[in-house]
């Protein structure tokens, strides 16, 4: 008898037999109704999502061509090369800042944060997620773009995105680490392992799928954000020049946000192509990370 969740005929065990009490019938019914509700809940998410993906895929695919990957935009038509490169640079740049802080912070909160300091950090991290992205953008605009004189730049954009995703990284990392059974930590300590080994090589390794989920979620958020970048990264019709400051850079969400507002069919098509690309980029990363994780275990 398998108790694996995949077993399709698990309910057989509880199929009502003659002479069953009303309590058993009730429990049986609750079981059926409960799972039906769960399925409906899933459909309530999946159907709108399917509709959304289909709309973007159809409209985006019809606008796809090789030109999109080989030429830069002129602000309304043309290709998306400048925006694709810019989005990658900005998002990966934000991860450079956010992952060490977020994952490190998450490890701290989970392993050593069962105190007042940990509680305070947790609370403030959750508060930070409630910051409207436009406020972060304006904060960065006043402090970095104007205050530090970086002008519109990759650095200002990446740091703004990093501030935005760090609390998600930290909190989701913490939540995944805390699910690693305490017995694993105890066993490692009993073998004479040091803090560093237990935290990084035992607990973090065990919770890697969860941590990767948080990195993906952060990547998704930063690839999909517009508001904080308009005032920090600016926008450029040209390819990124490799400069970290004093040079604006293009990105895909700007294309979605601005081109959809243009009075031209071609611009709308490019906007949908950009939306499709954003989703494909993250989907690819998502699939490959899962593939790597599965191979590892």
């Amino acid at each position: 008898m398998s108790f694996s969740s995949d077993s399709p005929d698990l309910e057989l065990v509880h199929r009502p037999r003659s002479g069953q009490t009303s309590l058993e019938t009730r429990r049986y019914l609750i079981n059926i109704i409960g799972w039906s509700l769960c399925t409906i809940a899933f459909l309530l998410v999946a159907i709108p999502m399917g509709d959304l993906i289909l709309t973007i895929a159809v409209k985006g695919a019809s606008a796809m061509s090789l030109k999109i990957f080989t030429t830069s935009s002129n602000g309304m038509t043309g290709g998306l090369l400048n925006a694709i490169v810019g989005t990658l640079v900005l998002s990966l740049g934000s991860l450079v800042f956010a992952v060490p802080i977020g994952v490190g912070g998450g490890v701290y909160l989970s392993e050593y944060g069962q105190n007042h300091l940990g509680a305070a950090i947790r609370f403030l991290a959750d508060t930070l997620t409630g910051t409207p992205s436009i406020v972060l953008g304006y904060f960065a605009y006043i402090t970095m773009v104007i205050g530090l004189g970086w002008k519109f730049s990759v650095l200002a954009g990446s740091i703004t995105l990093a501030i935005m995703v760090v609390p998600y990284l930290a909190r989701i990392t913490e939540l995944s680490l805390r699910r690693v059974p305490t017995t694993m930590r105890e066993a490692a300590y009993a073998l004479g392992a040091k803090d560093r080994t237990v935290a990084l090589r035992v607990v973090l390794a065990a919770a890697l799928p969860g941590v990767m989920t948080s990195v993906l979620l952060s990547l998704a958020i930063s690839v999909g954000e517009t508001a904080p970048l308009i005032y920090t990264a600016g926008w450029s019709n040209y390819l990124w020049t490799g400069r970290l400051t004093h040079a604006p850079v293009g990105y895909l969400t700007y294309v979605i946000w601005t081109f959809i507002n243009e009075p031209s069919e071609k611009s709308h098509a490019l906007a949908f192509a950009a939306a499709l690309l954003v989703m494909l980029v993250v989907l690819t990363i998502n699939v490959s990370v899962r593939f790597i994780l599965r191979k590892r275990t």
Partner: peptide, 12 residues
């Protein structure tokens, strides 16, 4: 499919 929801840019 559910994870993709998180990927959709807010504009979309």
């Amino acid at each position: 499919i559910v994870e993709l929801v998180a990927v959709v840019p807010s504009v979309v």
